[in-house]
C-alpha cells in the first residue's frame, strides 16, 4: 500500500528560505522522518535534517509538522489523510542553521546555569541512601530526552526573543524543580529559579506539557510545584514566620551564583 504524500518542506538558512513542494512515496507503517529520509535520498540530497535514534529517545529530530512541535520519528504518517498537504518546518523558536536543523545552543547555555546536584559534604559517593517515595517525583523528570520541544513551544521565548536572556524555559525550570525536590540535594534553588531562570514569566498555559513526547507532566508536577515552593518562601509571610518555629527547619543554603548564558 504505497501512495504519494504531498509535502511542503522549509528549505533555507538564516538569511532566507521558503516552503518547497514535494511528492514522496509513503509505505504502510512509516513515520514522517522516514519520508524526509526518502525525500533526501531521491529528490533533495542537500536537505539538512538532524536525526539519530529513530525511536523517540534521542530528541534529535524535533521539528514542526503542520505547525505542531513534534518528533518526526514519532509522528506516524497514518495520522494524515493521503490527500493532505503535510508541512514540515524547523523549530521556530531557535535560530535556523539550514533547512530543518536549528541551533539549540541556547538550551546548553541555560543548562550550564543550573547549579549542579549538591549532596551533603560528609556523604561519600556510594553512600547515597534514599527511599523510593522520596525520589520518584524527580524520576518522572529524568525521562526528559532533551528534544527541547517544550522550550520551542513556550510562547515566553517563541513570541518574545528578548525574554531569552532572563528565561530558561520549562526544560530547565523542570531541572531546578527536580533538584529542589531531591532528598539529598542541599541547595535552596527557589531564589535562582526566580532571579536567574525567570520562573515568574511562566503563565501556566501548559503548552510544554502538551508537546512533551515523553508525556512528562511538566506544568502540574514541576512548574506549579516550583511556583508554590517559591511562594512558600517569597510571597507567604505566614509560612515564613511558621518556619522560624518549625522543628528541624530547613538548613539549605542558597544556590551559588552561576554563569549567565
Amino acid at each position: 500500500m504505497t501512495y504519494k504524500a504531498k509535502l511542503r518542506v522549509w528549505r533555507g538558512d538564516d538569511e532566507s528560505g521558503d516552503l518547497k513542494n514535494y511528492e514522496v512515496d509513503v509505505n504502510e507503517g512509516e513515520v514522517v522522518l522516514d519520508i524526509v529520509h526518502r525525500l533526501q535520498a531521491t529528490q533533495a540530497p542537500d536537505l539538512a535534517v538532524r536525526w539519530n535514534c529513530k525511536a523517540g529517545k534521542c530528541g534529535s529530530c524535533s521539528a514542526e509538522v503542520n505547525g505542531k512541535p513534534r518528533l518526526m520519528c514519532m509522528t506516524r504518517m497514518n495520522t494524515f489523510t493521503e490527500d493532505e498537504v503535510i508541512t514540515i518546518t524547523p523549530m521556530r523558536t531557535f535560530p535556523v542553521i539550514r533547512d530543518l536543523v536549528t541551533d539549540v545552543s541556547y538550551n546548553y547555555a541555560k543548562a550550564r546555569m543550573v547549579p549542579a546536584f549538591a549532596p551533603p559534604a560528609d556523604l561519600e559517593p556510594g553512600d547515597y541512601r534514599m527511599a523510593q517515595v522520596d525520589v520518584e517525583r524527580s524520576q518522572e523528570f529524568r525521562k526528559c530526552i532533551e528534544c527541547f520541544l517544550c522550550n520551542n513551544v513556550c510562547h515566553v521565548m517563541r513570541d518574545h526573543e528578548d525574554n531569552k536572556a532572563s528565561f530558561s524555559g520549562p526544560r530547565f525550570l523542570m531541572r531546578i524543580a527536580e533538584l529542589d525536590m531531591h532528598p539529598l540535594d542541599t541547595v535552596d534553588r527557589r531564589q535562582t529559579a526566580v532571579e536567574d531562570h525567570g520562573l515568574g514569566y511562566c503563565n501556566i498555559t501548559k503548552c510544554c506539557t502538551e508537546v512533551c513526547p515523553e508525556h512528562i507532566h511538566i506544568t502540574d508536577n514541576a512548574l506549579i510545584p516550583l511556583k508554590e515552593r517559591v511562594a512558600d518562601r517569597k510571597y507567604d509571610p505566614l509560612f515564613s514566620v511558621a518556619s522560624l518555629f518549625r522543628k528541624g527547619k530547613e538548613k539549605r543554603a542558597a544556590a551559588p551564583a552561576t554563569p549567565k548564558g
Binding site: W10, G12, D14, S16, G17, D18, L19, T89, P90, R92, T93, F94, P95, V96, T102, D103, H155, R158, D159, H160, E161, D162
Partner: peptide, 14 residues
C-alpha cells in the same frame, strides 16, 4: 503582531 518573536533575526523565515 509580534515582531520580535517568530520573526526575530536568525529564525526560519516563515
Amino acid at each position: 503582531m509580534a515582531t520580535t518573536g517568530i520573526d526575530a533575526p536568525g529564525r526560519a523565515k516563515i
